[in-house]
């Protein structure tokens, strides 16, 4: 038995993502040799070097091709399938993310294996724990598939150390036609922010419907900048104020577990709670003392957020 981890990385920064380190920890719990596949465009070798230094990784495979640069599912899935066919792994793991939700099911269908997504605990080689219904039901699931394909909810696993290992690096098995020619990347709009990335930030300040307008989120940004945190939003805020969707925290958005989560003007619908309730400390500011968010908050403040947030920003 052996495990393949498909790495995620930031191409522009040339860095392995923290979520990959969490996935390597999960892979380690399967107690089989761990191979990491790093697929991407130019600069991917620098990422592979980082993966090779993670303790517990025995081999790193590098698939460098322009076709893999933007994570196009039709192309990327071919790289994973070819790697699996050459290595015959018992498990394929990837961090749970929008990117993996795009290509992992494609890989799974090509390899005819029903995957298990958003794994939060590993019981044994075929038994895993995952949330359903926005985390309102926690299922222990066993699979009869010979090839087990998992995505890992990274907030549930510690990051593996980034140094201390020394894995061999090799070129990944070749794909006949890396550019599948089915779809083309035209452009992207990446939110330009000096703030840390939402899913790995240590402090997250999220706003909900109580903020009333998109412009009022600037108040949260000011506080986030002082705390070196990221800004998030509830689904209601994304919906009503046309906020960028990548800020969404919750069942259908991102799952975060920062050291401090500050919920401002968020009532606390179950769909939102499922995205943040594993945060270490939760603070809620809401003018409605009956808001469900107070039931999960460590510290609740019933206050007018338009006064409390500037005051907090001032004093923090």
């Amino acid at each position: 038995a052996s495990t393949l981890v498909v790495a995620e990385h930031s191409e522009s920064k040339g860095t392995l993502s923290p979520s990959t380190l969490c996935t390597i920890t999960a892979a380690g719990q399967l107690q089989n040799p761990v191979t990491v596949l790093v697929a991407g465009g130019k600069g991917v070798n620098a990422v592979a070097q980082q993966a090779a230094q993670v303790p517990g990784v025995s081999k790193v495979l590098v698939a460098e091709h322009a076709a893999y640069e933007k994570g196009i599912a039709e192309n990327l899935s071919q790289a994973v399938v070819a790697t699996h066919k050459a290595g015959d792994y018992s498990h394929i793991l990837a961090p749970s993310s929008m990117r993996s939700k795009n290509y992992v099911p494609r890989v799974a269908a090509l390899l005819d294996s029903q995957p298990i997504t958003d794994v939060i605990a590993i019981k044994d080689q075929a038994t895993f724990v995952r949330p359903m219904y926005a985390g309102n039901a926690i299922a222990t699931v066993t699979t009869s598939e010979p090839l087990k394909i998992l995505t890992v909810r990274t907030t549930a696993f510690e990051k593996a150390p980034s140094t201390g290992g020394s894995a061999a690096t090799e070129v990944a098995p070749a794909v006949a036609k890396p550019e599948a020619g089915l779809s083309a990347f035209l452009s992207e709009s990446v939110s330009q922010s000096a703030r840390p990335e939402l899913s790995s930030a240590r402090v997250v300040i999220s706003g909900g419907r109580g903020l009333k307008t998109k412009e009022h989120f600037q108040m949260l940004e000011a506080l986030a900048d002082k705390l070196k945190g990221a800004v998030g939003a509830s689904r209601a805020a994304v919906d009503e104020f046309h906020m960028p969707n990548e800020l969404q925290v919750g069942q259908t958005g991102k799952v975060v577990a920062p050291d401090l989560y500050l919920a401002v003007g968020i009532s606390g619908a179950i769909q939102h709670l499922s995205g943040m309730k594993d945060s270490k400390v939760i603070v809620a500011i809401n003018k409605d003392k009956e808001a469900p968010i107070f039931q999960v908050a460590d510290y609740g403040l019933v206050a007018d957020l338009f006064q409390a947030v500037p005051e907090l920003t001032d004093k923090v």
Binding site: T127, N136, I138, K277, F294, L301, A303
Partner: peptide, 23 residues
């Protein structure tokens, strides 16, 4: 291809406390 062995309620957070002011 997969079967659910058991389903549980999620772990609940302990109720926190209410504070009176930003300070």
């Amino acid at each position: 291809k997969t079967s659910v062995i058991s389903v549980a309620e999620p772990g609940k957070r302990k109720a926190g406390i209410m504070v009176e002011s930003v300070d």
